[in-house]
Design a protein around this nucleic acid. Structure first.
Lengths: 216, 216
DNA sequence: CGCTAACCGGAGCGGCCGCTCCCCTTGTGC
DNA sequence: GCACAAGGGGAGCGGCCGCTCCGGTTAGCG
């Protein structure tokens, strides 16, 4: 489950020349780093330069910039899958939940593209939707444990988690250099607001599946 | 205090022809509406069209787009001042705090430019900094009452409030049409995380004055 | 070793955006 | 009412960005 296959449908490029394969990897790595540091706003020229190739080469492997963004986001999903595994391995339900939230928010705070992955063009992509659904099922399992143990408020849904994570993550972007650990402060507030004891019931409904969620 | 003078230093345009004054107002109103609906990303052409003037006219009154953004944000500050007054008028300390948070988050959720007002070019402007400081002093008063009454956790600072508000507000942007009241849900979580009972102490320090805050 | 198809790269295209320039219009004081 | 300065408006400039096109290069196979 944790393995993410970025070569979906993967028989298209079976015969790929050695240099082509290498360049594809370099572009993907450069995009991954650039998106993490500067967000999706970086120009393709900067990515190509960073990869040591021309823009022509970049666009052969990824016919559009959005395609490149999708590839990077799918790659990130592997990390999120790891977060889920780590949380599921935690015996104590509350510890499992806090582990999940901490890891997600930590990554979202240090990686600009994770917070920006909520933009509609990306969420509309079927490959990303599929992966998101898979991750949400894992999150639901963590939440169920917490609710059953009576440590987590009962009205939290899986869809709330990416929303809360991206809220903290994107807002912390401008403190990344000055106070890189500041996200812990606000995660603390949210976690206190999500524990079972003494919480008022949540307001309207959870965000429906109509328009949902960050990359989780 | 609630009065915000957008004509700072205001003796420059004392002799302003009638049509010029009227056009200036129309541009400001158009920008205000456009920024609220679409954020600061809208082009100046769209604003000018909306105001029924040419771009030349727009740039005479506001020599740069940033200047126009500043003018709109300063205008918004009046609304925030009202929020403060409403909260200060509330006798119960917790009610005062929730009133403040609710009004701030509500406005930030329905007005895109409020969430985007955290960008450095705007926060760097001395007029905005001055206004922000004034608002923060009012917020501090509300927090002091809550802490003294023992209903609010003691480690919350005034700088936390705009951070939390813009976190919720900007994240709710993509639900504005589908679920315009969703912000209440997450505000509820945050408020529960901020009340005095049963909360763990907040993590690192508050955001220092080095790089601070949304428009509040 | 040589041939060919696959691949590389960057000049350049079209479109957008903030901003300027300048000719024409219009409000205002005498 | 006239003269003139102040204001209005939009064509156009420069720069950026995603993307394409094509001449030169190179890997891979027999």
């Amino acid at each position: 489950m944790a393995t993410v296959d970025t070569t979906r449908g993967g028989e298209a490029q079976r015969t790929l020349r050695a240099d082509a394969r290498r360049n594809r990897e370099r572009v993907l790595a450069a995009a991954s780093a650039a998106f993490a540091e500067e967000g999706f706003d970086v120009g393709v020229a900067a990515i190509a330069r960073r990869a040591g190739v021309g823009t022509g080469t970049l666009f052969r492997h990824f016919p559009t910039k959005l395609e490149l963004e999708v590839a990077v986001v799918l790659e990130r999903a592997a990390g999120m899958s790891e977060n889920l595994q780590a949380a599921l391995a935690e015996p104590d339900p509350w510890e499992a939940f806090t582990t999940l939230m901490t890891r997600i928010v930590e990554q979202t705070s240090s990686d600009r593209c994770l917070g920006q992955a909520t933009k509609p063009e990306l969420l509309g992509d079927p490959r990303i939707q599929e992966l998101q659904d898979e991750l949400l099922r894992g999150v639901e399992e963590i939440l169920r444990r917490g609710r059953d143990a009576g440590v987590l408020r009962r009205d939290v849904t899986a869809e709330d988690i990416p929303v809360l994570a991206s809220a903290i993550g994107t807002t912390m972007e401008r403190f990344r250099t000055s106070q890189p650990e500041l996200w812990r402060r606000y995660l603390g507030v949210v976690l206190d607001g999500l524990r079972a004891d003494g919480a008022a019931p949540l307001e309207p409904g959870p965000p429906g599946p109509d328009l949902l969620s960050g990359t989780c």
